[in-house]
Design a protein around this nucleic acid. Structure first.
Lengths: 117, 117
DNA sequence: TTGACATGTAACCCTTTAGTTACATATAAT
DNA sequence: ATTATATGTAACTAAAGGGTTACATGTCAA
């Protein structure tokens, strides 16, 4: 539930893969999720626990199997923190574009000079 | 440089605070950055090393002090991974709005019924 | 009711993380 | 030249992470 948990949860590529897998096919069982993971079932369980504690997945027991559902909402915390930086890298991009444009302009100017008889 | 390093670097609130601090005032020295951190100088140094290894900051030595500069570019990796989910939580939001609208509509309908003599 | 399947719990192991203290080095200022 | 300031390195510790094996439980199906 806390933002920090969301960041930590998402910091591991195995856990991101689990989320990605649920984004493609929601409501998978534990064993289904295991099938694409390079580790034991217990390992996957632990990762799922962390994701659940971060509020990124919810579960429901159906008979002998447990279904896992993606809840992307907490990712908005990450997104909003990132928001402040989106401006910054856009500004940098702008400055870079300016630089390129100015470089091209001066190259064109040089070409024109070269083209003179 | 690798995406995983960026996620790990950003997963710690102390390191996020350091980035936030540089976003406000770029080019701070180590001791300046330390002043707002609840830990020893060496602790801060280690966090800064991790941020630098992730490519999120660059440094330059000037005399006896080391200046730290923010480089937000690698955060785009996080942002683009997040991109796939932005769609999902918007859809959820839409469904929620629909639900609210439908609920309000039926409440209005009920009010109108109540208003009948 | 027995066997197969899906999940849960416990105990353990190794590595990494996050922090510390103590000491060393380089530069600025008096 | 000496002292104060800014940073660097080494060695250590406690706790958390990420994984394992072994065993237990609950549920479906024949």
């Amino acid at each position: 539930m806390e933002t920090e948990h969301v960041f930590k949860a998402v910091a591991d590529h195995h856990r991101r893969r689990l989320l990605d897998s649920l984004a493609r096919a929601d409501g998978q069982t534990l064993t289904e999720l295991c099938s694409s993971m390079p580790m034991s079932r217990i390992g996957v369980m632990k990762h799922l626990d962390i994701l659940e504690q971060a509020g990124l997945i919810t579960t429901s027991r159906v008979g002998r199997e447990k279904l896992h559902y993606l809840n992307p909402a907490p990712l908005q915390n990450v997104d909003s923190w990132l928001g402040g930086y989106r401006r910054l890298w856009n500004e940098r991009m702008d400055r870079l574009e300016d630089l390129i444009n100015r470089t091209q302009s001066s190259e064109q100017a040089e070409e024109q000079i070269d083209a003179e008889p």
